[in-house]
Design a protein around this nucleic acid. Structure first.
Length: 273
DNA sequence: AACTATACCTGCAAGC
DNA sequence: TGCTTGCAGGTATAGT
């Protein structure tokens, strides 16, 4: 489900409801997520602590607690986070409940269970999921020199490269397709053959597309909703994603679809070279 | 080393 | 109607 814009919208939506709240109780469902739920760490280090702030890094939500520990949440494909009255009926696929001191509850719901949570700062830190991440698209170190350096002379298609979280974070399948259309670059273009000017275009278009998507509340294809349960509207502005067989809005050419690294890839064969 | 295919899981739509 | 098949926003791992 969620790429950078969706996670950012959820983060901003959660902020007023969770910051300053103390967690009084954590209830874990019986099923595991992609990684086993760290039940003991949650009870020992998160339960009883106060949320100082929540922020986004890549596609992770970070809840920083007053005791120095933090809770990492990754939403996978179908994960949702929302805040509900504690007495509200629970939904199918609610896997984690964090009850606050104000009789509200933050609930983690995930149909496919591709998401996961981890606790950091509690002593037995496992591997840090944030350790190997590349820069955020809006950081200064996401620049043309960096990208050309990382690309070298490799033949990897630009779309796969943009979706590599060790290169740049937050860009998933929807926005990789949209960014490359906006940059007028074909998704299979080998990264080793891109010019500095083209890298600059990719950076500029990345920031522009992601910013517009955040402003539209994210993209709702089937089940994404923000922290208040509302869908986004950027799907109305998609230029290529999911539009194979339809006409390009710029040149009326039929949008094509092909599989790249196992992922559906959409492009305009006329606008993108 | 570079790159792709596969696996994880559930739900839904399309096709027969 | 009911079955089967394929596909879906992510990412780690195995394999070529």
């Amino acid at each position: 489900m969620p790429e950078l814009p969706e996670v950012e919208v959820i983060c901003q939506g959660l902020k007023p409801h969770v910051e300053g709240r103390r967690i009084r109780e954590i209830i874990c469902g019986p099923k595991e997520l992609r990684l086993a739920i760290p039940r003991t760490d949650l009870q020992e280090h998160i339960c009883g602590a106060q949320i100082k702030n929540v922020r986004r890094r890549a596609k992770y939500l970070l809840f920083e607690m007053d005791n120095g520990c933090r809770l990492l949440v990754h939403l996978g494909m179908t994960g949702r986070l929302g805040v509900f009255p504690a007495k509200a009926p629970r939904a199918l696929h609610d896997h984690l409940l964090f009850r606050f001191d104000d009789n509200m509850e933050m609930r983690y719901n995930d149909t496919r269970r591709f998401g996961f949570v981890t606790v950091q700062g509690g002593g037995d830190d496992r591997i840090d999921p944030l350790a190997r991440l590349g820069p955020e698209p809006f950081w200064d170190d996401f620049n043309a020199g960096y990208l050309q350096e990382r690309a070298g002379r490799r033949l990897q298609p630009i779309k796969n490269f943009l979706m590599d979280s060790q290169v740049v974070v937050g860009i998933g399948n929807i926005y990789a397709n949209e960014i490359l259309f906006a940059a007028a670059i074909h998704p299979t273009m080998p990264i080793g053959s891109l010019t500095l000017t083209q890298w600059r275009t990719i950076i500029d278009r990345s920031r522009e597309v992601l910013t517009r998507a955040i402003r539209s509340g994210g993209t709702t294809i089937s089940d994404y909703v923000n922290a208040s349960g509302q869908p986004g509207y950027f799907q109305l502005e998609l230029a290529v994603y999911g539009r194979n067989g339809e006409k390009c809005r710029q040149c009326q050419t039929t949008i094509e679809k092909q599989t790249l690294a196992g992922r559906a890839t959409y492009f305009c064969p006329c606008c993108q070279k």
